[in-house]
Write a protein that binds this DNA or RNA. Sequence first.
DNA 1: ACAATCAACTTGTCTATACATCTTAAAATA
DNA 2: TATTTTAAGATGTATAGACAAGTTGATTGT
Lengths: 251, 251
Amino acid sequence: MSDVTIHNLANLFDDLPDAPLPIYAKLKQAISLKISSGEWQTNQRIPSESEVVKALGVSRMTVNRALRELTAEGFLVRHQGLGTFVAEKKAHSALFEVHNIAEEVAARGHKHRSELLVLESTKASMEEAMTLGVRTNHGIFRSVVLHFENDLPIQIEERIVNATLAPDYDKQDFAKHTPYEYLMSVAPMTEGEHLVEAILPNAVECERLQIQASEPCLQIKRRTWAGDDIVTAARLLHPGSRFQLFGHFGR
Amino acid sequence: MSDVTIHNLANLFDDLPDAPLPIYAKLKQAISLKISSGEWQTNQRIPSESEVVKALGVSRMTVNRALRELTAEGFLVRHQGLGTFVAEKKAHSALFEVHNIAEEVAARGHKHRSELLVLESTKASMEEAMTLGVRTNHGIFRSVVLHFENDLPIQIEERIVNATLAPDYDKQDFAKHTPYEYLMSVAPMTEGEHLVEAILPNAVECERLQIQASEPCLQIKRRTWAGDDIVTAARLLHPGSRFQLFGHFGR
DNA sequence: ACAATCAACTTGTCTATACATCTTAAAATA
DNA sequence: TATTTTAAGATGTATAGACAAGTTGATTGT
C-alpha cells in the first residue's frame, strides 16, 4: 500500500471488445485488463473515483459500483480516506484455487522442478472428445508432466488440450512454464469444474511418485473453459502424505 | 418461478442483532433470515423493490443494492419484468459447496439416514480452543454423526461447536436436521475454509464406515465463521470408493 | 519546536429522479 | 372471436447531489 502514479485514463476503454455492455461493466473490464496486463501493478494505487468521473464524464455512483464489485471479487482493496489499490495476487482465492503447483511450491519457499514425460499431438478418442466437448478425431495434445518439490515428486499432471484453442501447445518449453501457465496466457480461463477423489495409485504411478502402493492419493480432475469452449482437461495425482488441498470461501 | 404471496414487511427488521450496520446490509440480513428460516421458500416471489420502498421508507437504490448483492451471492434470482425469487437451493454453488450431506444424498434420489454416536457438552481442550479461536475451557459441544446413503455409510461427521454461539446445539433432534442445518439457522455462515486430504482410516473408522483398512478416504476439515466468530469446526471422513467431491467456479 | 487545528481528498452510504427493457394482463380493435 | 395495442408493474442502469467518516499534510497558534 504505497506508490502513487500518474495514470492515463484516456485509453481506459481501449482494446475492449465493443460488446453492448453497461458502463459499469465496461469499467470493470477495463480496470481488470489494466491489472491482468500488468500495467497497474500489485499494491499500486489506482485513480480515485472522482478522477475517473472527471476523465470519463460518468457519474460517481457508476464508478463506485465498478470498483465496489471488483473489490468484492478480490481484484482491488479499498481504504477509506486513502484510495483504491490493486489487491495482492490472490492472497486468498475465492475458492479452491486455480491450481498452479509451481506457484504453490514457490510460495512455501521450496524448489520446484518438473519433468516432461509425454508430449504428443494426436486425435481425440471418443472419451477424450466427450471430455473436451469436441468431435472424435478432433486434434488434441496430450502431455504428462511430473512435478517435484525439493526433488520429491508431488504431482503427476496428465493433460489433454484442445489443439484448436492452443495450437502451439507442443512447442512450449515446459521447464520454464507449467502447461497451465501457458494455457492461461493464450486462453484465459473463465470457468472450471473439479472432481476430487481419494484413490490408490497404480504401479506406474507408485514408481513415478516414489510411494508405496498402499499410500492413498488425492486425485483432482479438472476442466477449464474459455468462454463456451473447453480448453483443457487435466488429471492431477498427489501423494496423500505430501499434499493437502486448501480452500477458502466467503469474505 | 411461480407463487406470489402476501408478505408482512413490517416485521422485516425483527429478530436482527442491532449492530450498527448500513441500511442495505440490514436489509440483506433480514432477507437472508427470511430465507434460511424457511418463511420465504424456494422459488417463491419476494416483495418487489417498490413494495419495500413503500413499507420501509428507504430509497429504491438501497433496496436494489441489497437485492443485487444477494443475487450475486446466490440467494436470490431476479427476472426483469417478473420479480425477485428465492433461489433454488444451491443447485451448484460458486465453489466447493457448503456441504450438506443430507441434501446431496437426496439430490441423487437416494435415502439419507443418520445415527448420532456422540453428543456431549464439555470444555475446550487447548487444541480445540485454538481451532475455534476461544480460550481453553470455553464451553463447547462435541458431536459425532454417522451418515448413510441407502443404508451404506457415506460420512463420519465429527464436530465441535462454540457453545456461546449455538447454546441449544445439544437439544436438537439430529434425526430431523443435520447439525449443519441447525447451525446455519442460528448463525448464518459468512466465511469458511477447508482442508482436503487423502488418508487411510483407523480401525474405528473402518468399522463405522464398513470398509477395509486399505481403502483410501477423503478427509475434509472445515471451519465456518459467522462474522468474526468461528461457529464450528468439523472433520468429515468419506470412503474413497463411495464419494467424490465436486466443485465448480466461474460464472 | 511542538501541538492542535483545519482543509482537502478519499471512500462509504443514501436519496430522488429518470429512462430503458422486459413481462403480463387488460383494453381496444378488427 | 381473435388479434393488436396499451398500460402497469417489475428489474436494470445512470445521474446529480448530499453527508458521513477516515487519512494526510499544511497551517496556525502557543
